[in-house]
Write a protein that binds this DNA or RNA. Structure first.
Lengths: 199, 199
DNA sequence: TAATGCATTGTGGACAACCACAGGGAGGCT
DNA sequence: AGCCTCCCTGTGGTTGTCCACAATGCATTA
């Protein structure tokens, strides 16, 4: 079940090690980093999981790391851990989408609970997205050209207009269009729009 | 501009009066209450505005009041003001949708800014909803028959199929369809679907 | 009663979409 | 070289959509 990793980012080796040990001993997959830079550099682009970020670190702070993740539209759930946090900081982090903001020191119990909650969100997001990721997968099977055509179809453009824009024959547009519909499992542009609208 | 009221809820008359004075002197519409109960009782059902809630009060706490408001799907923006708040409390409040969580004492400057931000959200929500209610209004101008046809058009049905279902001529369907598009201000079924999808 | 709005239907033509069949060129993989 | 995928193009015919012009029956309202 808990295949999703927990990313631990803290400059203090003692904290890192003890948390890693705690989490490993409870069956979590853990990856630890000693700086925000190292974490961001090592991060696969579309990974999912929970990031536990220390706020105060040399170089990038936990909040900075969070900003980067948000800029990249990361799917990670972010949980802050701070020894020097204050209410405005916590409020801002949560308003920007952080999952929680814990104070150090915190009980192992509390931390594990929060991480469990966070992981549930990750998997929950997945299951509830079943049909959506399905659409996403199908989107991925489209060739570049098909994507270009589909975008314009969704824009309400006529085949003729698309043909002009892309400098290809109308017939070719028709073919791409038909391929898109077939791959996406829809019958019309209308269906396609509604499929992608519930995104 | 600032037609939306600010609801002030604090058991401490001194705090209430000074905040009310501050806000009134800056042109806000203010209504003050000495308890959560009084506030909830006096509240019109679908009112909009900003509620500034003290957390620690006899009877219902600010958090309790917030819960009630959420249960009633209130449109109010809630801003907490607390002298004894801690991070977990603030985090929870924000995660549940509170607009902000300020510590007492706080500078007049800071409070005014937050209230301004909150009021902007209120009006912003309104304006951004303009086009939506706009679509709603237009929907209301459709004749019953036009509605029936539109529903089927959105279902991806062909005019011929719609004609069969409704036992009318294709031509009639075409007319209704054209009327729907004209009234809704769209050019195609695709536009219509996207207009209603953002509902 | 006259006016208005709604639903209905028809003709005919221009334009667009859909489909089956058919084929060529470029680039990658085995 | 053989195979595959992607991209490109064409013919011809059916079906669907859009539009202008034209008209009738019915119900509500002024």
């Amino acid at each position: 079940m808990n295949t999703k990793p927990v990313y631990l980012v803290d400059d203090d080796a003692a904290v890192r090690d003890s948390l890693a040990l705690l989490l490993l001993s409870h069956g979590y997959t853990v990856r630890a980093f000693e700086s925000g830079e190292a974490f961001l550099a090592a991060l696969p682009p579309d990974c999912e999981g929970v990031a536990v970020l220390d706020v105060r670190m040399p170089g990038l702070s936990g909040l900075d790391v969070f900003d980067r993740l948000r800029q990249d539209d990361s799917e990670l759930i972010v949980l802050f851990l701070s020894g020097h946090g204050d209410i405005p900081m916590a409020v801002q982090a949560v308003k920007q989408g952080a999952f929680d903001f814990l104070e150090k020191p915190c009980s192992e119990q509390a931390l594990l609970e929060k991480i469990d909650d966070a992981l549930e969100v990750v998997v929950g997001r997945h299951t509830s997205r079943g049909s959506l990721t399905e659409a996403g997968k199908r989107l991925a099977t489209l060739s570049p050209r098909e994507r270009e055509v589909m975008d314009r179809v969704l824009g309400g453009k006529l085949n003729k207009q698309i043909a002009d824009e892309l400098n290809i024959a109308i017939r070719t547009v028709e073919v791409h269009r038909a391929n898109v519909f077939a791959k996406m499992g829809v019958r019309s542009a209308l269906d396609l729009a509604q499929l992608l609208a519930g995104r």
